[in-house]
Simulated assay, not measured.
Amino acid sequence: GSVAAGYLGGAISDRIGRKPVIIVGFGVEALFLLSLAAVGGRTVLGLALVALGSAFGSVGGGASQAMVADLVPPQRHERAYAAMRVAFNLGITIGPPLGGLLLLGQHWPRLFLGAGALLLAVLGLAARFLPRRGAYSPEKPPERGSFGVIRRDAPFLLFVLSGGLAYLVYVAFETVLPISLVSSHGLSPSAWGFLVIVNPITVTLFQLRLTRRVERYPAAPRLVVAMLLMGWPFLLLSLSASIAVVALLILVFVIGEMLWVPTSQAIVAGLAPADLRGAYMGAFGSTSAIGFALAPLLGLQTRAAGGDTAMWTFFAAISVAAAISGAVACRFAAGRMAARAVVSI
């Protein structure tokens, strides 16, 4: 559902504008959050509401990513997407303590009501301050269907494949790594919770600095380095799972993540035709849903069959495949962006 919703939201935003799609998509997600307060013990209903709410959140995701490219010139795309990551990770850093305060006394309805109300308040600010169009928005809506264009765009499809593989590695960090550390290596859940906060704090403090330092280098080698930094540190766990090693793994992983995300988003913005930018950003963003669906399944099945080392070797190999496919796609992207720059002169 989230895969289709992300693409459709982006495609619709190409036709009616980014702002209404962002507000409606995240607004419906907020309503689903509020409705969770009334679920009580009806588990199936609660899970269905969570799934539907996430899908509507994806509707606004592609439009919001496309709006970034509408607002800033192409040479500043990476910095703009890096700034978005800082804001996102600041929310990840602040969100758990705020949620804990709302959950005092294990009052779950208050948590859902508070989160939903906060999202609606943010959408009120978006309705007031988001522009209807940016300085780099296309002049008119597309006169062609986006699906057919995307289907014939081999470099973009290759980059989507690379993104899907990269998200398998990323989601392995989010979901499979804590399972392995707690069940196989005896790390306490509280210790993992303390260590993992290094990730969003590091992004919040250093993402913009790192992006400025590396943006002068070509995208392809940056993407290769990013993928290897994300996938290969898992292999350290075959040697040791001490606190120091886990902390090092997290730090190296987050450096790779900081290289990967803004670089990949800027590449997609560069590959996308201006009139179909939302559809392209939505289609690429939907690869995250594929990662969340498949990474735990594939990782834990590999672990059950061959143990933790086999599982981490699998994800390291996936990172290599993501690096190779992404680097090849980057070469096509660089040529396409250079050709557009010549035409615009």
Rank of each mutant, 00 (worst) to 15 (best):
L210E: 04
W260P: 00
I197V: 15
L177C: 11
L237P: 09
S264N: 03
L223T: 10
V198Y: 01
I267P: 01
R216Q: 08
L168Q: 15
L187E: 04
R212S: 06
L235K: 02
I250M: 01
L223N: 13
P189K: 12
V176S: 08
L239P: 07
R216K: 14
P221F: 06
S162G: 09
F253A: 00
E174C: 01
E174L: 13
F234K: 08
V214I: 15
F253D: 07
Y170N: 12
V224E: 05
F253P: 00
P218I: 09
L205G: 01
G231V: 02
V182D: 07
I201T: 03
S188T: 12
A266Q: 15
V224H: 07
L208A: 01
V252N: 03
M227K: 05
N199P: 04
L259P: 15
G164E: 13
Y167T: 11
R216I: 10
L208M: 14
V169G: 10
R212L: 10
V203E: 05
A191N: 08
L205N: 06
L239T: 04
I255V: 12
L165P: 00
L237A: 05
M230R: 14
I179W: 09
L248H: 10
V196Y: 14
P262T: 11
P262D: 08
I197L: 03
T204K: 00
V196N: 05
S180M: 11
L187S: 02
R213H: 09
F234R: 11
A226F: 09
S238H: 10
A191K: 08
S188Y: 05
F173P: 07
W260Q: 11
V225S: 03
R212W: 02
F234Q: 06
V245C: 02
L195F: 12
L236F: 10
T204V: 06
V214H: 12
Y217R: 07
L161P: 05
W260S: 05
S264G: 08
W192Q: 05
S162H: 05
A244Q: 08
M230Y: 13
